[in-house]
Design a protein around this nucleic acid. Structure first.
Lengths: 335, 335
DNA sequence: TTGTAGGCGTTATCAT
DNA sequence: ATGATAACGCCTACAA
């Protein structure tokens, strides 16, 4: 099918030089006479020569591409959550600048875990990024042991010592909850995220700690970051204590779910119940009412993620094993 | 960095056979004695052998990976539009089933066009998919001429004859507009999409044609599929004719923008103005009021896209050059 | 059924 | 500065 492409050999013949010289020109070596260089370039253009990447990788041991692993749990990616798209955007931008290719791997099933490992082991990519990590997934650690450069988005749980970039969950939540307290709210609930992910765990910890400092009682319901789970959690929270006057949701989507459930229950926001989310997706500017939320720099996290692997790959510079990006409270009308 | 991996040679030595035999076993050839096959498998496991993909590609001329090109115009991808994520999901699912890898290329800049061409030409992927095509982009055609299997999502504009999969824009819009007419609306406006994309063009054509059949006058404003552009378009539409009683927006995001602008202008939906969108993103179930919209099967389109390239790649079966997926009107409360 | 050997297209190490 | 000439790791006729 794919028409025969010209090889180095063909270009060399046409330019009347050796393959080695053509290779030098193509790779920008300086030690080539100007005249020859020009002749080679001409031959390259005329023939439409493009280096064969497989052959090149075979000898250089480099593929110039990096994998991004997205542990796609159907629930989350099938909702309109924009976390992964944002990560992908950040990673893509940074990789493009570095002229590397992005290989996207969505590992829904358990068996695909194996696939990923083989894939990286096959030397098909120069490095691997995890878009998020569930539980104490052994894969990142396994890859590290294989000698593959790896960086995770989100601090991995468990003993594994893998470099990661994360955001300041705890600080952001503390800020949000203190804001609620300052507003005079005393019955502050939380809709927490999944407790097998550091984002879920740390945000809940931030809530608990801040509330304890304020001497207030906890009201906790667990969700999975989706809007549907936010609706369900809000209902159960309301059932548990109808007099709640505030709720912190660990994701914007769950906050939107809370908004819907609250409206359904006849509560006004923020008059009766104040609501704060976590993410700051664009959609939150347009919710009813506009959502007060903790902004996390997801695209930035993606960029950083990419910069870290890239650094790991060419061993340049000193890289910290952990990068924590700041979060920021964005006050709108819901609290 | 990356620890030396065992080669075919090493496995062969360990199993006491030749490289050829190991290769056969690894590739599942049947003509290998059971005993030997077992011995080889054992050696493979003990050594943790994984075939080197570069070496394999060099001889097979196959990479087992496919590229998805996303012409990322900042505007669109930076909003919370879920079109691309949905396409990616569909493509990803299908590719995973076929055990192929997804290489994601976001071509924001013009120069990246060149990069993509070189990349495909370098034989780094077995085929290429376009997530959407702007104007009469010459790239798909150029790749086809290079002998690269190509499929576009969205019928390409211009003379190029590239296989594509698309949805029934015209039919979906016609259905929506007829619904509006049946509701008794007589001043029906449209917020059209960008006129350099077939999705924008066809949807506008559907509106025009249906309106003409009903003997009604046109009211057209152009947007770019984003919510912001929907807000602006709705405002200008209202300025042009304050008595509008319906609007069809060519995307859900623009429809949401229209909803916001309408609320701002003191119009009730659907009492004063009926609104219909196009996409049926999850978010539209939760807008105020829930949005009536034309559902297009985006994830399916992604799956189909992938199936088509895969078919092209291994030349199996007869593939139609065009696949049109059906659309469907989902009636909720906004119209 | 199994082994031998050539070649896939580059890069890199030598000489020259 | 340029040119031979080995690798790189695998697949696949062809022989045995």
């Amino acid at each position: 099918m794919t028409r025969d492409r010209p090889t180095l050999e063909a270009v060399a013949r046409r330019a009347g030089v050796s393959r080695a010289t053509v290779s030098r020109v193509v790779n920008g070596s300086t030690s080539v006479a100007a005249g020859i260089r020009e002749a080679v370039h001409r031959a390259v253009d005329e023939l439409g020569y493009v280096p064969n990447q497989a052959a090149r990788s075979l000898v250089t041991q480099r593929t110039e591409s990096v994998a991004l692993i997205v542990p796609e749990t159907a629930n989350r990616v099938f909702s309109d959550d924009l976390f992964f798209p944002a990560i992908i955007r950040g990673v893509g931008a940074e990789l493009e600048a570095a002229d590397k290719q992005l290989v996207l791997m969505m590992t829904g099933s358990a068996k695909s875990h194996d696939r990923v490992e083989r894939y990286a082991a096959a030397g098909h990519v120069d490095g691997v990024m995890f878009a998020s990590v569930h539980g104490s997934d052994p894969l990142p650690g396994a890859l590290v042991r294989l000698g593959v450069p790896v960086v995770c988005s989100g601090r991995p749980i468990g003993g594994t010592t893998v470099p990661y970039v994360d955001v300041d969950h705890f600080g952001g939540v503390a800020h949000a909850v203190r804001h609620l307290v300052a507003l005079g709210r005393r019955r502050i609930a939380t809709i927490a995220g999944p407790q097998d992910m550091v984002a879920g765990i740390d945000r809940l910890a931030g809530y608990r700690s801040t509330l304890a400092n304020a001497g207030l009682a906890e009201h906790v319901a667990i969700g999975d970051f989706t809007r549907e789970s936010g609706i369900a959690a809000m209902k159960s929270l309301l059932a548990g204590d109808p007099a709640l006057d505030a709720v912190f949701a660990a994701s914007d989507m769950m906050a939107h779910g809370a908004l819907l459930a609250l409206r359904d229950a006849g509560r006004r926001v923020p008059d009766d119940v104040a609501v704060i989310g976590f993410d700051d997706f664009e959609i939150s500017r347009y919710s009813e009412p506009p959502l007060t939320t903790v902004r996390q720099p997801i695209v930035d996290a993606g960029r950083t993620l990419a910069r870290q692997v890239l650094g790991l790959i060419d061993g340049s510079g000193e890289l910290s094993d952990a990068v924590i990006l700041p979060t920021e409270l964005v006050v709108r009308e819901s609290a």
